[in-house]
Amino acid sequence: MGIRYYAYAFDGDVAKKALSDPMSFMSADPLADAWGLEPGVGTSYTTFGQSIPERDMLYLDKAWGHLQVLTAPLRAGMAARPAFRMFEGNVTMHDDGWEPWVRALAPSEVLAIAQDLDDVSDAEVRLRLPVSPYVDRDLDVEYAVGYLRRARVFARNLADEGRGMVYLIG
């Protein structure tokens, strides 16, 4: 199924708890939340729409890797964009699969991220994404831009409401 990205919002008044225990703000079944499945059920019908309001959850599917590349430092020794904090991280691989990457971002961090995402142009995606002979470039860029736009809206809404977020790559 692959490694995917899920983010959940939290209110500013619980930021201290979220920062100290991010997993307590994660769903037990984020894929079910993202795809409209019944949580914990092995086989069920899906709506292929989020069961959690978009105000409270961001699902980036596998586009997180593209957004990570887009916001990462251009070269070694250079600083990453502030938005990189929202996409940074990789799973830890081991013999039995992987352990997810989990991070909480305080409302102040989300504000800086939202401001930075507003400055990332859709055209920048085409410039920064690596070229692969195995992928249709136009479809790949379109895929990344669509999720970039979702991330922009999510971060902007959180910033406007003084909320933070917890995200999981896994």
Rank of each mutant, 00 (worst) to 15 (best):
G77A: 03
M78E: 12
A79N: 12
A80R: 06
A80T: 09
F84H: 14
F84L: 12
F84Y: 10
R85A: 15
R85I: 06
R85W: 08
R85L: 11
M86I: 10
M86C: 12
E88Y: 13
E88S: 13
G89P: 04
G89Y: 02
G89E: 04
N90D: 08
N90Y: 12
N90E: 10
V91M: 02
V91R: 01
V91L: 02
T92R: 06
M93E: 11
H94E: 04
H94G: 07
D95I: 13
D95L: 12
D96R: 13
D96Q: 10
D96C: 11
D96L: 13
G97P: 07
W98M: 09
W98I: 03
E99I: 10
E99D: 11
P100T: 00
W101C: 06
W101F: 10
V102Y: 04
R103E: 04
L105N: 00
L105G: 00
P107E: 00
E109Q: 11
V110C: 00
L111P: 05
L111W: 07
L111Y: 06
A112H: 08
A112P: 05
A112T: 13
Q115T: 14
D116H: 02
L117C: 03
L117H: 02
D118I: 07
D119S: 14
V120D: 01
D122Q: 06
D122K: 09
D122Y: 04
D122P: 12
A123D: 08
E124V: 07
V125Y: 01
V125T: 05
R126T: 14
R126M: 08
R126S: 14
R128I: 05
R128W: 03
L129Q: 01
P130C: 08
V131P: 12
V131S: 10
S132F: 06
P133A: 04
Y134F: 13
Y134Q: 13
Y134A: 13
V135W: 14
V135C: 10
D136S: 07
R137M: 08
R137W: 09
D138A: 08
D138W: 03
L139Y: 11
L139H: 10
V141C: 07
V141D: 06
V141S: 08
V141N: 09
E142V: 11
Y143V: 09
Y143T: 08
A144I: 06
V145H: 02
V145A: 04
